[in-house]
Design a protein around this nucleic acid. Sequence first.
DNA 1: GAGTGGTCTAGACCACATT
DNA 2: ATGTGGTCTAGACCACTCA
Lengths: 250, 250
Amino acid sequence: MTESPVHHEPPIYRRIADRLRDQILSGDLSDGDRLPGENAIMAEYGIARATARQALAVLINEGLAVPRRGSGVYVRLFRPIRRHGSRRLSREQWGQGRAVWDSDTRGRSYTVDEVRIERTPASEHVARVLDCDQAWVRRRRYSVDGRPVQLAVSYFPADLVEGTAVTLPDTGPGGVYARLGDLGYSPAHFTEEVRARMPQPGESSLLGLPAGTPVIIISRVAYAAGGIPIELNEMTLDAASYVLQYDFDA
Amino acid sequence: MTESPVHHEPPIYRRIADRLRDQILSGDLSDGDRLPGENAIMAEYGIARATARQALAVLINEGLAVPRRGSGVYVRLFRPIRRHGSRRLSREQWGQGRAVWDSDTRGRSYTVDEVRIERTPASEHVARVLDCDQAWVRRRRYSVDGRPVQLAVSYFPADLVEGTAVTLPDTGPGGVYARLGDLGYSPAHFTEEVRARMPQPGESSLLGLPAGTPVIIISRVAYAAGGIPIELNEMTLDAASYVLQYDFDA
DNA sequence: GAGTGGTCTAGACCACATT
DNA sequence: ATGTGGTCTAGACCACTCA
């Protein structure tokens, strides 16, 4: 028996996807350009519908292309927000009555909606981090230039913030950190945990994410002097809309 | 004409995927368990092959499941490495002859391979960051418990490191940062930019990533005293294998 | 050898967008 | 009205895994 050294070429749909990807990455096809449609690909390569679709699905799942029903498949566009991990939370920010978010958006317009505030029993995870049984929870969604980019959920120890503006939709100048300062619990230290994964359906729809877009999960704990935890903030960011920046010394 | 208020139920493949996702997220199916195969799904729902595949593709592209040829589709397992953004780069680390990586792995075994070192003309981006025309480039791949988890490429100004151990495979105790210290350019400050996106094919194969796994891109610049840039390090991490941690004060 | 996932064909009907 | 992507059927052959 002769062993033929099979070359194992990649399947057709991969080769088509590779070819289109090259055109995108080389700038041959650029932001917003229309890719060849399913019919065009079928004709050009003489293949079946499903195979052409498969090729396009590769690029869509890589986040390089976005399908528009009844119109075509288009090269995706990016313009991330730069989020400064430390500067944005410096004392000067909220000390001067400015919202933390002003630091990120740098002139671009942003809105907050889907705000929900409630008092609930702390989940196991929240109870462990904040060392409390009951928590006030603030949920909201941030949009920049009309596009949703972040979901955020903040937890506060209920005993600490009960009856303060932290439990109200409008937290006043400087936001919740200024209010916590009023209570004698100014944030002194933060830890952020950063993860990335594919979104779950609820996250996808709230953020309006096309397929192939991961989310960045930031879990931040704020501590007052003495290491007292005062806030747990779980953020879900559209990864295509963000660059996180951290500065630190050796 | 009567407008019937169509309810728009999600398509079958979505409903199947949703059902399986629930079982995974609820722990009903847990790490490493086998999902129902294509044939089982076809039979259970009375649908065609392609539709059953489509349902499984959803979970695979969400990073929740991993297909194994000839065997089945399995629930994916996680156990991330915790990477401390600041502690790991403290002066004590490399000052004591310990590699930065020892801080991350905490006892787990790790290996480095695919090492390539060369001197090249600096790309536009590298030239802008490091302010130089020629750069020494160190590429390598890190694996933990036998699985590749990170690709890294470091750039150094060629004039600065020419003829030092920075250009050799073995950089000696304390690694490149200790060597830069020997030259009078100890790292004093770092900035890290963090992004997340879907991997490109080369990254996928070098990291052995299953579909549905994003990568985290960390772009770090090290500065010596006086703000002199001495290293640009571009890292590509398997997002499923990492949690990044950053600590900072208000 | 039986079962599994990977690739592919050749049709079909639908909702939607654009012209 | 035409073309687009979205969903689905009913087959087929292959490479691979596992018992």
